[in-house]
Amino acid sequence: KKEGHWDCSICLVRNEPTVSRCIACQNTKS
């Protein structure tokens, strides 16, 4: 897992550190 990346708590997609919403389901970063 790269530094700063985060996994969506709903759909588990891994997102870039620069985005505050999931690219797949638009869930906000927790």
Rank of each mutant, 00 (worst) to 15 (best):
V19H: 06
A24V: 10
S30W: 01
N27P: 10
A24N: 13
E16W: 04
V19I: 08
E16P: 07
A24C: 05
A24G: 11
K29R: 07
P17L: 06
C22V: 03
C22M: 02
T28A: 14
E3F: 15
S20E: 10
C25I: 01
V13N: 15
P17M: 13
N27K: 11
S20V: 12
T28D: 15
T18V: 02
S30I: 02
V19D: 05
A24D: 11
E16K: 01
L12R: 10
K29Q: 13
N15A: 00
T18F: 07
K29A: 11
T18M: 05
K2F: 09
K1C: 15
C25W: 00
W6K: 04
E16H: 06
N15H: 08
R21A: 12
V19E: 08
C22Q: 02
K2I: 15
C25Q: 11
C22Y: 00
A24E: 09
C25Y: 00
K29F: 11
P17W: 01
P17E: 08
N15M: 07
K29T: 15
S30T: 10
C25M: 02
T18P: 03
V19S: 11
T28E: 13
T18R: 03
C25S: 01
C22D: 03
S20I: 09
N27D: 13
I23F: 11
Q26F: 08
R21E: 07
K29E: 15
K29V: 07
C11I: 00
R21I: 15
S30L: 05
P17V: 02
N27E: 08
C22W: 00
P17G: 04
C25E: 04
R21T: 14
E16G: 15
R14T: 12
E16C: 06
A24P: 05
I23D: 05
C25R: 01
Q26Y: 04
S20C: 05
E16M: 01
C22T: 04
P17S: 06
T18S: 13
K29L: 09
T28C: 05
N15Y: 02
P17D: 08
Q26T: 09
C25H: 04
N27V: 03
V13C: 12
Q26K: 12
T28Y: 00
N27R: 06
T28N: 09
H5T: 15
P17Q: 02
R14A: 12
P17H: 08
N15F: 00
S30N: 10
S20Y: 03
S20H: 13
V13Y: 03
C22A: 02
C22P: 03
S20D: 14
K1Y: 00
R14M: 08
C25D: 04
N27A: 09
C22F: 01
V19L: 07
D7F: 07
E3I: 09
I23V: 12
R21M: 10
P17Y: 05
R21W: 00
V13M: 09
T18C: 00
P17A: 02
A24W: 05
I10L: 05
E16L: 04
L12V: 04
Q26C: 08
S20G: 06
T28L: 10
K29C: 12
P17R: 02
K29W: 13
E3N: 06
R21N: 15
Q26V: 01
V13K: 10
P17K: 02
R21K: 13
T28H: 13
L12A: 15
T28F: 08
N27I: 09
C25G: 01
T28G: 06
T18N: 14
Q26E: 08
I23Y: 08
R14W: 06
N27L: 07
R14G: 10
V13T: 14
Q26A: 11
T18D: 14
S20Q: 12
C22H: 04
A24L: 10
R21Q: 13
R21G: 05
Q26D: 13
E16T: 02
I23K: 14
P17N: 14
K29P: 14
A24H: 14
V19R: 11
R21C: 10
W6L: 06
S20L: 13
R14H: 07
T18H: 08
V13Q: 07
V13P: 01
C25P: 02
S20P: 09
